[in-house]
């Protein structure tokens, strides 16, 4: 089925080596700072939350490390499936695109940005498989059905277009579409933004389960500390384009060091 891209993960999943290393990444828009001097590593199977208010530079950072935006300075290197560490901006376009549609996932805040709204749910999930060479309709469909089940979408909706889906269903479909090629790293940009509270809770629950079962590494951008607390192992707090605090999620939320983080935590997590 998807064997062509499912390379033996055990061999490269040496957890003592980072999956991605970000060094001194900065992005300037003219004189304005998008983000500045960001350093971090992420290890396989780890969930890192980048939190901050809107305008803090978290989405700029996410775009810089996912090749959607070229940083002004700094390096981003990624451990390919063969174990070699490669500079993302030294990759050819073909390699970069292959990475984007096999080894990575990107979950957009607005599902319409990540889905093909005019093709069926089945084809949305199957597209990545076809892109890497699957040519058996029945098998593609079976895999799509399986994935719809895993994201709690009824199998009889497989031929419906996402336009006919609720916001929560669209978001779950987007997740299935991204995970079908068993990526090792998934970027998420406010995946629960724009959803009702009850729908958010269900989606978070589902995401937590999938991330755990699949051993995914996730970099998630959110302004919602509750989302960060539920999903992430580590957190980075950003303000004005800079990282002002970085640490294990539990530690950071229980014992924030930076005054700004203290303010954030006290204002949001009172309940």
């Amino acid at each position: 089925m998807t064997v062509s891209v499912r390379i033996d993960q055990a061999s490269v999943e040496a957890t003592d080596l980072p999956l991605m290393s970000v060094r001194s990444v900065s992005k300037f828009y003219g004189q304005r700072i998008g983000c500045a001097d960001v350093d971090f590593d992420i290890w396989p199977g780890e969930v890192l939350a980048i939190v901050g208010e809107s305008g803090s530079g978290k989405t700029t950072l996410l775009n810089c490390i996912s090749t959607r935006l070229t940083p002004t300075a700094g390096t981003v290197s990624y451990r390919m499936r063969d174990g070699e560490m490669r500079d993302l901006y030294g990759l050819g376009e073909a390699e970069r695109r292959l990475l984007l549609r096999t080894d990575w996932g990107f979950v957009h805040q607005n599902p319409a940005d990540g889905l093909r709204m005019t093709v069926s749910a089945g084809a949305n999930v199957g597209e990545r498989l076809m892109a890497v060479g699957d040519r058996h309709y029945g098998k593609i469909r079976a895999t799509a059905t399986d994935w719809l089940g895993r994201v709690e979408i009824d199998a009889d909706r497989i031929d419906d277009q996402p336009r006919a889906f609720s916001g929560g269903m669209r978001q779950r479909l987007q997740i299935a579409r991204n995970l079908v090629t068993a990526p090792r790293l998934v970027f998420m940009d406010e995946p629960t933004g724009g959803l009702d509270v009850s729908v958010q809770a269900r989606l978070l629950d589902l995401l937590r389960g999938l991330v755990h079962d699949l051993g995914l590494a996730v970099i998630i951008v959110t302004h919602d500390l509750a989302v960060a607390r539920l999903l992430s192992h580590r957190m980075m707090v950003m303000k004005d384009g800079r990282v002002i605090e970085h640490g294990l999620t539990d530690r950071l939320l229980d014992d924030p060091q930076a005054p700004y983080t203290q303010l954030l935590v006290s204002s949001i997590l009172q309940v």
Partner: peptide, 19 residues
């Protein structure tokens, strides 16, 4: 074409069969 990204072509054929 340059990158041989022809997945979308099969998405269309998939949709035909599904419909």
């Amino acid at each position: 074409h340059a990158l041989e990204e022809y997945g979308l072509m099969h998405v269309k054929l998939y949709e035909d069969i599904a419909k």
